[in-house]
Amino acid sequence: MHPDQSHLPVRSDSEPVPPLCLDLDQMLDEFTRLPIRATFRFDVSLPAVVTVEFPAERGPGLVWCIGRELLHGGLTSMSGSGEVRMWPTLPGGRPASWLLLESAEVEALFEVPTAPLAEWLKATYRVVAAEAEWDGLNWDGFLGDLLGGPGAASA
């Protein structure tokens, strides 16, 4: 096993890419960091999306669905717009990227170590290539859900 892959659990047949538990720093302000562990999950049935769960002290954790391409791009350049953005930190420090999550209820900035996330993303692309992300999508079901579910009027 390559030394950079030591953080990845061994693959199982039921889960082609195991979840990645990653220690991040949440920036509470310019000088205050709060260590937090996030869990990144990849589901082959929806490969364009990575779910990221942030634990809560009380109650259920906060789950964000983030585009796999956005995470991959944010390791090396500005990526995303709107509610989710990611970009590399300035050179000179430890290799990391900033992940900004915004909604009406929350705004959070996290420093994400790039090496383990990059290796994990590579593993997801070995399972489902970027070009094949949308191949298995049930477009009829997706559009039905988008337009109001199974009872929605059709043209």
Rank of each mutant, 00 (worst) to 15 (best):
A48L: 06
C21Q: 14
F110P: 00
P60G: 01
S103D: 07
W134V: 10
A56T: 10
A104Q: 13
G80D: 03
A104F: 02
G151T: 15
S45H: 11
G82W: 09
A132R: 13
A130C: 07
L22N: 02
A130Y: 07
E133I: 01
G149C: 05
L24S: 03
A123E: 12
S14Y: 11
L28I: 13
E111W: 04
F110Q: 00
L46M: 15
L117I: 09
V84Y: 08
R11C: 04
S45P: 06
G144I: 02
E69G: 07
W98P: 00
S154R: 15
T89G: 15
A155Q: 15
D135Y: 06
P35C: 05
D145T: 11
G74K: 08
R33N: 03
T89Y: 01
L109D: 01
S6Y: 10
L121Q: 04
E30K: 09
M1H: 06
D145M: 10
D145I: 06
W64V: 02
S45R: 14
V52Y: 06
D140A: 13
L62N: 06
L24P: 08
P60A: 11
L146D: 12
I36Q: 03
L147D: 12
M86T: 09
L28N: 06
G148S: 12
L143F: 14
E107T: 14
R58L: 01
V44M: 02
E83T: 08
A129G: 13
V84D: 11
P91Q: 03
D25M: 14
E53W: 00
S103K: 02
S77N: 01
D135R: 11
G80S: 03
E83F: 00
V50G: 05
P95V: 08
V17A: 10
L100T: 07
L101Y: 05
Q5A: 15
V10W: 01
G149A: 02
D29E: 09
D4Q: 07
D43E: 14
L143K: 10
V63M: 08
R33F: 04
A115V: 10
R94Y: 05
R126M: 14
R126K: 15
L28F: 04
L8C: 10
D140G: 04
E53P: 00
S81W: 01
L99G: 02
H7E: 11
H7F: 13
V49I: 13
W120D: 12
G151S: 15
E131G: 01
F31A: 14
D135N: 13
L22F: 05
H2I: 09
L146F: 14
L101S: 09
E83N: 13
H72A: 10
E111S: 13
S103A: 05
R37P: 00
S6C: 06
M1V: 08
G73S: 11
G149P: 08
P16D: 10
M1W: 04
L22I: 14
P9A: 11
G80H: 07
Q5I: 05
C21L: 11
E133A: 11
M78F: 03
L71Q: 07
V84H: 08
E107D: 01
T114M: 00
T32M: 10
G59W: 02
G141T: 07
R68Q: 02
P47E: 06
L8N: 03
F42C: 03
L20D: 05
L137H: 09
P150D: 12
G136F: 06
